[in-house]
Design a protein around this nucleic acid. Structure first.
Lengths: 187, 187
DNA sequence: GTCTATAAGCAGATAGAC
DNA sequence: GTCTATCTGCTTATAGAC
């Protein structure tokens, strides 16, 4: 029995890249096979549930990276401004400086929408809450903190859409650079 | 020769709805046929270029509605605040109160991305410029006006992504309601 | 301008050898 | 765990009758 050609971690990275590039409906098994370097049958050996299971694994994988790079910095024991700055660095890496689409966008569309809506909702909640806590720690009123946190999530998603559509990272870079100031401003 | 069952305008409305619901890759000819009530062959009679031409027609059609509902109010001869308020009303109608995805998002993904990138870029430019002019008319510095206009486009796109992912119109409604204040605030 | 029927190819998924 | 070969159904697109 041959050893796996590449570790599962690497397979997930490549599947993630393919889904991010083509979306769920556009990512055919043939493309996923090419992206991973594994034959179709090998993919089905890894993921017996087929394309849906691949997408679920990608969601979990991406969720892990997001927690590490973006959420954990927000939850650390540091000054709110510092936590937000760390989040910006994490966002920049997570979204490849604005080159990568967000799964929250891609998996909300078409047939993926029905499959993943609940998980998308949960991910958005966690992100918004982590930012809101940070803003409350900075002394902001709870309602204001929640709304501004949602504004941040909205701005990030919108910036990614615009950056993709215009094939330029400028919008994403400007928006995330201005985030800490917008979130912490008075009142 | 039988008369057309439904006017082309109505065909475009239904195609638009189907593309908005399923995305480009997810909108199969069978679904488009069902959505319009026309047989596949009738669709190809209308759109000899196939699915791509249907999508192009939808882009043009949607672009027309957008100009009417959103851009024209911004270009009218009225006070900037009033023009922005009219834009909000137009956005609310154009995006079905937050229920409809934006073509700028959907057609930036997957195989549609390569086909429509230039048009997407143009549409975003026109929208941002129309807002920026309004803000300049309100006395804002040109650079600030341009950045805030981009922020508005970003916020609208992001709010639509979040509203779709969470299956709730709340984010969209709050974001667009707060737009005029955010755009016109001093400094 | 509509339809039914069909072509040709790609989709997701599987069987079974090594 | 990998592969080649294959199945079934759906995909885009077309032909041709009415």
């Amino acid at each position: 029995m041959p050893a796996p050609l590449i570790p599962k971690e690497e397979v997930l990275d490549r599947l993630t890249a393919a889904f991010r590039q083509h979306g769920f409906d556009g990512a055919s098994i043939a493309r996923l096979s090419e992206a991973t370097g594994l034959g179709k049958a090998s993919l089905y050996h890894y993921f017996k549930g087929g394309k849906q299971e691949m997408a679920e694994a990608v969601m979990a994988h991406v969720g892990g990276s997001f927690s590490e790079l973006v959420l954990d910095p927000l939850r650390r024991d540091a000054a709110p401004a510092q936590r937000l700055n760390q989040m910006i660095l994490g966002l920049n890496e997570f979204y490849h400086r604005g080159n990568a689409s967000c799964i929250l966008d891609l998996f909300g569309i078409g047939s993926a929408g029905e499959l993943f809506r609940l998980q998308l909702k949960g991910s958005i909640d966690r992100f918004r809450n982590a930012i809101a806590r940070t803003l409350e720690d900075a002394g902001l009123d709870q309602t204001i903190a929640t709304n501004r946190a949602e504004d941040a999530v909205v701005a990030i998603q919108g910036a990614l859409v615009i950056s993709r559509a215009t094939d330029s990272r400028d919008a994403f870079q400007r928006v995330i650079a201005e985030l800490p100031g917008r979130l912490l401003r008075q009142p």
